[in-house]
Design a protein around this nucleic acid. Structure first.
Lengths: 254, 254
DNA sequence: ATCTGCTAATTACTCCGACATATTACAGGA
DNA sequence: TCCTGTAATATGTCGGAGTAATTAGCAGAT
């Protein structure tokens, strides 16, 4: 299809909520559509039960082919956000059908203004899972695990959490703990949560300079795991998550 | 590099396509393809790093159009199982990219012979999350929650776990607890795990008659939650999960 | 001999238009 | 009023054509 040169007469079609979804490099067109629609659903623009416009109409509105639109819908269907049936159309599913732990869904949820209650839920889940993971890690870690954690810790010391490199080191530290549990389910779960929580740390940074030095807390966790003390590891990790929740909560409520 | 897969296609000379991916009612063609390929990946028939045949070749092999095949691939991509790039083809991603907690992925994982280690991982996760959920439920439940749990319990008593109605009541009981936590993330997570674990209970049934009456354990959980005693609720739920793991483990290792 | 930049081939990506299928809604009859 | 058959409508499937992007190979320069 040849794109027409945007001429002088107005952009009445753009204003009806059909602004073109820009796609970065490596991102396909249908991926961009899915991203756009996913954010629209997560942000509440489309509520559960709402039925989307027909394929032909919506595809035309987005200025994409029906194929690309359909592939985007399949992505959303795979994540439990919508359901399509002949004659009935495509409707948004109730919230309990959504795969809220899917990394992409989490990214969409945090793309706009994240729901405070949902952030609290995630931290609560994290407060349940991560101390237990630290407990298991203290029992099952080997020398390689400890070395990776140690390296991540020193990297966190060099850069701060204000830099991307520092946050990456923080993620590496937590991932090393997860890996040391030898539990794939735990690994996948907390990788998702960690990614989501990482968005909130950006909010923390934006709100104010770091009020607390997070290194000592991390060191306590490391020491307990290295010593093979499960109870102490769980305890130390519990403190760490609590502090993170406290910081994030105070940064978000205003 | 599996290029040809005799077990997946073939027998196209059959009448009415007996060997094709059968799709039940309500299941679309691309959904059936995704199901088929998903199981093939989860079962290890395609290993991480393997590159699938080209779109045209594979679609022809499956006797479906390229559109249907592509939509199926989008589903797998959305679940983190594969990744497609021009010129490079579609390749299976490493296991840590898979969304193992996606309900559909879990179903695929348990469609064939489930990996024992993975089952143990899931139970370990369940043993972490469910007692914590019971603890929260004991703090936050209201009268409606308790009524639903009570009804589910009596339904479990009437039918046994040997019947589908009994298992449904069991699921209702656990879902009621999750709902009482007022935590959406927890709800979604344990709904997935519970569904997967439910597959294993079928294995239990198949192996032998139920060696234990599960009702008293459930009653203990209910009593603790009704009494608003978080510690006792977590303790009782921990016992329940441990017993379930014990039964399943003994049933699987024969 | 090694590296850099261009060219070409391959592959997924997008678009299009048509037909098939399933589900709902309505109308007609008992 | 209820049931049944029929028609309308939106999703589902198909096949082909053309586009865009990425990799591999080759030529030239360093």
């Amino acid at each position: 299809m040849v794109k027409e040169n945007p001429s002088l007469h107005g952009q009445e079609t753009e204003n009806s909520g059909a602004a073109k979804a820009v796609r970065g490099p490596g991102r396909r067109l249908h991926g961009a559509i899915a991203h756009k629609l996913g954010m629209a659903i997560l942000s509440g623009h489309y509520a559960p039960g709402d039925v989307l416009s027909g394929e032909v109409a919506f595809a035309e509105e987005l200025e994409v082919s029906r194929s690309a639109y359909r592939e985007a819908i399949q992505v959303l269907t795979a994540k439990g956000l919508v359901e399509s049936r002949p004659k009935a159309g495509t409707r948004v599913l109730p919230r309990n059908r959504w795969n809220l732990l899917d990394p992409e869904v989490l990214a969409w949820a945090f793309a706009g203004e994240p729901d405070i209650q949902f952030v609290r839920d995630l931290f609560e889940l994290r407060a349940i899972v991560e101390p237990a993971a630290a407990r298991l890690a203290a029992q099952r870690r080997d020398k390689d695990d400890l070395k990776i954690m140690k390296d991540a810790l020193s990297a966190m010391r060099r850069h701060t959490l204000a830099t991307e490199a520092g946050r990456a080191a923080d993620r590496d530290f937590h991932n090393a703990i997860l890996h040391a549990t030898r539990n794939d389910a735990l690994l996948v779960l907390t990788a998702s949560i960690g990614a989501a929580v990482n968005w909130t740390t950006q909010y923390k940074q934006r709100a104010r300079a770091l009020p607390r030095n997070p290194i000592p807390d991390h060191v306590r966790v490391y020491d307990a795991i290295a010593a093979g003390d499960p109870a102490a590891a769980a305890e130390a990790m519990g403190v760490l998550v609590d502090l993170a929740l406290e910081d994030t909560a105070s940064a978000m409520q205003r």
